[in-house]
Amino acid sequence: MKIKNEMANWGPRSASYWMTLLIAAGIIIIGVRFMLVPRTGAAGFGIPLSSNLDLAFGRIKGIRDIFSGLALLPLLFFRMKKATAYVFTAAIIVPATDCLLVYLNNGPIMSQLIHGITVVYMAITSYILLRDTKKTTA
């Protein structure tokens, strides 16, 4: 009954739970902003939209961000630490690629820093999640 044991040992009392929830909620909010005001979202991202024809791409990014956040919520709700750890760790590729794209497009240094800090934050959170996972399943 590893699942019951896992649920009993991880949840709202764990820092890694809240650290993961912060990223999930944050990316949902960013996605909603992209859906509602794509120009503002793109400017905040670090690569502004160049014409009205680009508005659809902003909304495409928005729905993908919303999905990324929503994908973590059931794992958190059901306290599936191991699955959360693996999905969250794999998701680091998104802000890392975003950081690189903003850099390659001569985006603002602040946007590059935000994406880079997100990578570091997610790497630390992943480390904690994976470390905690090894303790529970060992």
Rank of each mutant, 00 (worst) to 15 (best):
K2C: 01
E6F: 02
E6N: 06
M7Y: 05
A8I: 04
R13F: 09
S14G: 04
S16C: 05
Y17A: 02
Y17P: 00
W18V: 02
T20Y: 12
A25W: 07
A25P: 00
G26F: 02
I29M: 09
I30W: 04
G31A: 07
V32L: 15
R33D: 04
M35P: 00
P38T: 08
P38L: 11
T40F: 11
G44S: 08
I47F: 14
L49T: 02
S50H: 10
S51M: 09
N52M: 13
D54Q: 05
D54I: 01
F57V: 07
K61G: 10
G62N: 07
I66E: 05
G69A: 06
L70H: 05
A71F: 06
A71L: 12
L76E: 04
F78N: 03
F78E: 01
F78W: 10
R79T: 10
M80P: 00
K81A: 02
K81W: 03
K81V: 01
Y86P: 00
T89G: 07
V94D: 08
A96F: 15
L101C: 07
L104K: 14
N106K: 07
P108L: 07
Q112N: 12
L113F: 12
I114G: 00
G116C: 06
M122L: 02
A123G: 09
I128E: 03
L129F: 04
D132T: 11
K135T: 15
T136H: 08
T137D: 13
